[in-house]
């Protein structure tokens, strides 16, 4: 396992409020990692920083074997570098069909002229079918994404994340609004992805995290409070105080 992403000493302030405070996290490839923490611990802001949405006041975000800094890069360049993100609130393109949503996410060249002269290929169609099968939307491919149920949108978003085939998957609350069976399926998908990729999951559901069976990082007030196996962190006194003990 080699280090894929290294975040060190990152801080960010919104109008005097310190959302992230000297945060340092590493993740290797392949690795599965869960990030937990109470509301306002900075989980989403952390993802914003990694994906380029928010620019930190200080600190470094280093990526890949060539150790490039992600800080100067645009969101799209970071995404092309291999970081995919699933949002907390499912944000699919509701006006478009499931197939179009997946096709857009599919790993291909992203330049406007490449896309303009893009030709549909048998391979691409097969991959879309495969993904649709995996996320249970096989029969819904021609439907408008807006017509899907909330859970299906979650699945579509996961499908889009997988279609991107990124090296690092940042997954924000994937199990929200899912049935127990679906959660299990999600866990399977994430675990399978983590065999070859780096996967970072933000979740509140302890059961879900227990099933992932991976290293857990606890965030609190914008900094790492504890790190280790789930059992290890849940026995940590501070973690119990700020999070579990409530």
């Amino acid at each position: 396992m080699t280090t894929l992403l290294e975040v060190s000493g990152v801080s960010v302030t919104f109008d005097g409020f310190r959302a992230i405070n000297n945060l340092s996290i590493q993740i290797g490839e392949p690795e599965l990692r869960a990030v937990i923490g109470p509301n306002g611990a900075g989980k989403t802001t952390f993802m914003d920083i990694v994906t380029g949405k928010t620019r930190p006041d200080e600190g470094r975000v280093i990526w890949g074997e060539k150790s490039v800094s992600l800080l100067g890069m645009s969101e799209s360049a970071i995404a092309r570098a291999g970081i995919g993100r699933k949002f907390q609130k499912p944000t699919v393109f509701e006006e478009q069909t499931v197939r179009e949503n997946l096709a857009m996410a599919l790993r291909n060249k992203r330049g406007p002229f490449d896309v303009l002269f893009h030709k549909r290929s048998r391979k691409g169609a097969a991959r879309i079918a495969e993904l649709a099968e995996e996320i249970g939307l096989r029969d819904h491919l021609p439907r408008r994404a807006g017509a899907l149920s909330h859970g299906q949108k979650q699945w579509l978003e996961i499908g889009m994340l997988l279609a991107q085939d990124p090296r690092l998957l940042l997954v924000d609350e994937p199990a929200a609004g899912m049935t127990p069976a679906e959660r299990e399926h999600t866990t399977d998908i994430l675990k399978r992805a983590a065999k070859t990729h780096a996967v970072m999951v933000i979740e509140h559901d302890m059961e879900f995290i227990r099933r992932l069976g991976c290293k857990v990082t606890v965030l609190h007030e914008g900094a790492v409070l504890a790190e280790g196996s789930l059992d290890h962190v849940t026995q940590n006194k501070e973690v119990i105080d700020v999070y579990l003990g409530r």
Partner: peptide, 21 residues
């Protein structure tokens, strides 16, 4: 292409995170 620009119309931030400039 049409799909991408319509996606930009509806949520351009999301399109960025898909890697489109």
């Amino acid at each position: 292409f049409g799909s991408v620009i319509r996606a930009i119309r509806d949520n351009e931030a999301r399109v960025r995170f898909l890697g489109y400039h």
